[in-house]
């Protein structure tokens, strides 16, 4: 039995005692979910299907409450999963072949957590718990989100022991070319976040999934980029730092030479404001360097100018020169600039 493995030590006495008491009431755990079916890519705006298999093990009927199964799905925010995904499942409990459709967990629903995690996860919504516990699933940019779905409430889950649960996620890809790792969480609304063997919280992530034939620029969550910006998103009144690293993608024209920033700001009305100067990166090595700028100053912005984003290239020319390299994020499309979003989401 699981509780017999716990060694009680000094300060943890309270927490462990509380955990043991709750542990006697409910024990449940999901088998590690597996993605059993998923395409490698899809065209922008088209629907595709992900099939995930799991099972619920070691269930003792709870004394109170009507547990629901939780499925979390991680995808780019731009896909608007709340509107563009349908999640269904079938299990032995309802009878295999009987499809149940899940609904979105209401925003004000707080996640249930095991006693030893109460401090860490108190009063969080399900998507917040998923972000904290599963993170971004290896995606390198934060513009992805967890959306939580749940099943109907069950009187008891007893009877589901070791039986399969087949989850089907049907989702419409967003309009933009994208490389992203999608994620799935399976959980329960009872005593959900506990440790060790009593752990009805599991996650699984896909390989890098591609959306093709869509709009530019390519949003690449999977691969480290030639340039990295801090903060990730900002306003015209932030100090923006850009680092470049030619170890990630060697560009011969930029190695061991002066590298300049060729930038333009684009307003919300789609007006392009070219920077009159090309700031010089401070070089750390032949392949790395850094620049900082204040957009309001670099683009000489007036008070009321509202920016949508900043586009930039790296170049080795201090002024506009015919034939100069314009290095962006996509080695296969030299007209595509790096993209820095102005905003505060």
């Amino acid at each position: 039995m699981i509780v017999s493995k716990i060694k009680i030590k000094g300060k943890k006495l309270y927490l462990l005692a509380a955990t043991v008491i709750i542990g006697l009431v409910i024990q449940s755990c999901f088998e590690q979910p597996v993605i059993v079916e998923m395409p490698a890519s899809v065209k922008a705006g088209e629907n595709f299907t992900i099939k995930v298999k799991t099972s619920l093990l070691e269930v003792t009927a709870p004394k109170a409450g009507q547990p629901r199964m939780i499925i979390g799905f991680l995808a780019p925010k731009a896909w608007d999963i709340r509107k563009n995904a349908v999640i269904t499942y079938e299990s032995d409990y309802d009878g295999l072949g009987v499809t149940q459709t899940m609904t979105i967990v209401p925003d004000d629903q707080r996640a249930t957590v095991g006693a030893e995690f109460v401090d860490e996860y108190a009063n969080l919504s399900w998507p917040e718990v998923m972000l904290k516990r599963s993170g971004l699933g290896g995606n390198l940019k934060p513009d992805v989100e967890w959306v939580a779905f749940w099943s109907k409430p069950y009187t008891v889950f007893k009877g589901m022991i070791s039986n399969p649960i087949n989850v089907t996620i049907n989702v419409k890809a967003g309009p933009q070319n994208t490389l992203v790792k999608l994620g799935v969480v399976v959980s329960l609304t009872l005593n959900t976040i506990t440790d060790g063997n009593v752990n009805p919280y599991k996650n699984v992530f896909s390989e890098c999934f591609e959306v093709t034939n869509g709009t530019r620029p390519l949003v690449d969550f999977c691969n480290p980029q030639l340039t990295a910006t801090v903060p990730i998103q900002g306003t015209a009144d932030d100090v923006i730092t850009i680092d470049y690293d030619l170890n990630i993608r060697p560009v011969p024209q930029l190695i061991g030479t002066n590298v300049y920033l060729n930038a333009r700001a684009v307003t919300v009305d789609d007006v392009r404001i070219n920077s009159t100067s090309r700031p010089l990166f401070t070089r750390f090595t032949d392949k790395t360097g850094r620049i900082e700028f204040w957009p309001r100053q670099l683009f000489k912005l007036g008070k009321g100018t509202q920016l949508s984003h900043i586009e930039y290239f790296l170049t080795n020319a201090a002024t506009a020169t015919p034939g100069e390299p314009a290095v962006g994020p996509n080695p296969n499309d030299l007209t595509e600039p790096f993209f820095y979003k102005i905003g505060c989401e």
Binding site: V230, P231, V239, T282, I291, E292
Partner: peptide, 20 residues
């Protein structure tokens, strides 16, 4: 000067100017 918890300028340090 500290941005989001990380120092971006320190007069006692190297005093590097990356453009601001």
């Amino acid at each position: 000067a500290v941005r989001n918890g990380s120092a971006i300028f320190n007069a006692d340090g190297l005093n590097v100017n990356y453009g601001v």
